[in-house]
Simulated assay, not measured.
Amino acid sequence: VPTYVKDSSNLISLPSGLETPFEAQSDYITPNDQFFVCSASDTPRIDAETWTMTVAGDGVGRAITLSYRDLMAMPHKTVPAYLECAGNHRRLFEDVLGEPLNRRPSMTEVKWGLGGVGMAEWSGARLRDVLRQAKIRDSAYHVCPVGLDVGLEDADGIRVPMPVTKAMHPDTLIALTMNGDPLPPDHGFPARLIVPGWVGTYSIKWLGRIDVTTAHQWVYRNTELYVLAGDDWPVDASAPSKGAPITEQTIKSSLALPWPAELSPGPHRLHGWARSPDAEIVSVEWSVASDETWHEAEICSPNHRWAWVRFELEWEATTGTHELLTRASDKAGRTQPDRVPFNDGGYLFNMVHPHPVHVR
């Protein structure tokens, strides 16, 4: 279990992670001290005065080294974006679908509930501005950030590559602040990547260098760890990876209630959070599982491309055990599915799921 800097007493301790109790997500912005953490090792303590970051590789015309002050002096952009672990909702594969986890012999999966996600305003330099300083070549193929934290898979830093097109997107940031404050140590101080709409592993913390190559980079995280594998995922289609590499997030919605929840009979105004990988949410519907009628929930927050939205609904609770369902749709035409195929890593669970509620 990694060692963290923040006080974790109000968070749920998991192997390699701290989960935010989802029922505590009441505000649009997740406070830094309540934001979930997923780390492969202890939080490194880094001195910004001596820290530097290097950009190099055959995909750039010249290698450059930047200090914290260099990045602070560059033009900054603020991007409101949720950050979510690819394994968030993993426990629901067991709880809802009855699919046992931990099917990968060499790994123990972190059993995230609903709270491996948080919403923040990130500010920093655009990654593309840094790559342009290094004279990124037209032939560049992969941009691979490397962290200063060390995991079992990479002795000299956690890494995962992304295509140049995503790296050059104007909203992909080298973030220096989180919700207006310097990045907290657990969240990547002094500098981390923020890759909106993609699973959290791409938002590498504690940046040390960025490798830019003209060839495809195969690393542990896109060949073994963050891949969709199992009976429903043919291996041959993804070779040399052991499954389809995971990049983009999926559309989701969940109620901000304990699991299971306990309520008193009578009227309740409930809320939850819906998000999409790269489009505004256009609607959230809700239903009681015993009733085939769907109702429109009210969207009650800003609605940005990379951000989540708060939705609210009025429910007249009657005594007994109920299951509440929510279903989000986005501007790109995506809607949460009624079912998702299982994968051995328990990733990307986003089906319409029954939230158990006991009314007594």
Rank of each mutant, 00 (worst) to 15 (best):
M168Y: 02
P105K: 03
L14W: 01
G57R: 00
F189E: 06
A134F: 06
G266F: 06
L83N: 12
P265Q: 09
L127Q: 06
E312M: 08
R104W: 07
H89N: 15
L152D: 12
G333S: 07
F36Y: 15
G116H: 02
G61V: 07
N343S: 11
T177M: 11
R339K: 14
L114A: 12
E121V: 07
D156C: 09
D344W: 11
A261F: 04
M53I: 14
H169G: 12
T223E: 00
T321M: 11
A40I: 11
V359P: 05
Y347G: 07
P258H: 06
A24Y: 10
H76M: 04
I246M: 03
S329W: 05
G98T: 06
H187D: 11
V110Q: 06
E153H: 13
V146T: 09
I281N: 01
R128A: 14
V219I: 00
G87Y: 08
E292W: 10
P190I: 00
R132H: 13
T326C: 15
R275D: 09
N222F: 00
Q217C: 07
A134V: 02
Q25V: 13
S9G: 06
C38I: 10
G151R: 04
D211A: 06
V143A: 01
I210L: 05
M107C: 08
E323I: 03
T54S: 12
W273E: 04
T78P: 08
S67L: 02
R126Q: 14
W112R: 03
L18E: 12
S16Q: 11
R310W: 04
V212M: 03
S283I: 03
A215W: 03
D278K: 07
S203D: 02
T20Y: 03
W206A: 03
D338E: 15
R91H: 10
L207N: 02
A289D: 15
P260T: 05
Y226S: 00
G333P: 07
Y82W: 10
F349A: 06
D181S: 12
P105A: 09
Q217D: 14
A279R: 07
A40H: 08
S276V: 02
R192M: 05
R310T: 11
T50A: 13
F22V: 11
T214F: 04
W218Q: 00
A155N: 10
P354R: 13
K166W: 12
Q249A: 14
P184M: 02
Y4T: 05
V219L: 01
H295Y: 15
I29Q: 11
S39K: 15
K166P: 01
D58K: 02
R91P: 02
Y347I: 05
S16P: 01
A120R: 14
T65P: 03
E314L: 12
D7P: 07
P245K: 00
V143P: 00
S139R: 12
N10H: 12
G266I: 06
A24D: 13
S290H: 11
G200D: 09
R132W: 09
E19W: 08
R275S: 14
T108I: 13
K135S: 13
V55T: 04
K242P: 01
D33H: 15
G151Y: 00
A24W: 08
Q25I: 13
L173T: 01
G61K: 10
V195G: 01
I210F: 01
S290P: 10
Y220M: 09
E296M: 11
I281V: 09
D70T: 05
G333C: 09
D7L: 05
V164C: 07
L255R: 09
